[in-house]
Design a binder for these strands. Structure first.
Length: 277
DNA sequence: CCACAGGACGGCT
DNA sequence: AGCCGTCCTGTG
């Protein structure tokens, strides 16, 4: 078990449950088991500290700090947003402490391809099915968990086996992506260094990845905070709170107003809209 | 039985 | 270039 002093605002619960990640499990005691890249961790917050344990505690402190982006100071971004949009003040204050989790690119790509026209519970279920079928089993606190497979582990995967994992019509999209990765036609590491526009269009060259999915991938796996993933929920907020309709208009508003921190603004608005009542 | 869920595709104007 | 029916699956 490791212990990290929480120096800056940090809301563990909201950060985990606000829709960024799918493969987490809430325990009876209120703590969370989360399947990270190559290990399973349990985390909880108590008296100003973040506690974490894992089946593999090597370098755990740094892994957890990095995963939850604890070293990044969000107050600069928060001030920027408030200075550019007075209406967002409540959402920013409410969500202060919400962090952008740094996720594994491959798992993120697969997760958000599955997310299209799909609900959170079903996305999580499909991901868990894939992990159970192709991922490495890990025992942690007397429970069995499955790591998310690497694309190499999925080299021989078929459309039928993906279907049986309940991914639905997205089976062919997933297979196409997995094949390209195994043939080295795509290098997921190169997206870190690409500018956002180039990265977006390069991601959208792949079947099953449109603007929303590409934006989520860049936001959650590559820390590109200037994207603005527009889904039906965002459309609703923009219409009701800002009187703006149409994807084009929303995109323009976000670019002008939130600029390089558009993605952070979305997370705050979403978290606020979802939890304030 | 039908509507809809945190989209994207493909075929049509 | 924009519109719209369709796509698997689970829930209400």
């Amino acid at each position: 078990m490791i212990k990290i002093k929480i120096e800056k605002p940090f809301k563990l619960n909201d950060t985990i449950t606000c829709g960024q990640i799918f493969r987490f499990f809430k325990m009876k005691d209120g703590s969370f088991d989360i399947i990270l890249k190559d290990r399973v961790i349990n985390v909880f917050e108590k008296e100003g500290f973040l506690f974490a344990s894992s089946n593999d505690e090597s370098n755990l402190k740094n892994v957890v700090k990095d995963y939850f982006d604890l070293n990044n100071d969000y107050s600069i971004m928060n001030e920027f947003l408030v200075n550019h949009d007075k209406k967002i003040v409540d959402a920013v204050n409410f969500s202060s402490g919400l962090k952008m989790i740094k996720q594994d690119p491959f798992e993120t790509v697969i997760s958000y391809i599955i997310s299209s026209n799909n609900g959170v519970l079903q996305i999580a279920s499909a991901l868990n099915n894939i992990a159970q079928k192709y991922g490495k089993k890990v025992k942690f606190n007397e429970k069995d968990y499955y790591l998310f497979p690497k694309y190499e582990d999925l080299k021989e995967v078929t459309l039928e086996s993906l279907r049986s994992c309940k991914v639905g019509f997205r089976d062919k999209y997933l297979k196409a992506m997995i094949d390209k990765l195994n043939k080295n036609e795509i290098n997921l590491n190169e997206f870190y260094d690409l500018d956002t526009q180039t990265a977006l269009s390069k991601l959208m060259e792949n079947i099953g990845i449109g603007p929303k999915v590409a934006s989520c991938i860049l936001l959650f796996a590559y820390q590109k905070y200037d994207v603005f993933p527009i889904d039906t929920w965002v459309k609703k907020v923009m219409k009701n709170n800002y009187k703006i309709e149409g994807e084009k208009n929303i995109r323009q508003f976000a670019k002008e107003t939130y600029g390089k921190y558009s993605g952070i603004a979305i997370q705050y608005l979403f978290n606020y809209g979802r939890n304030k009542n």
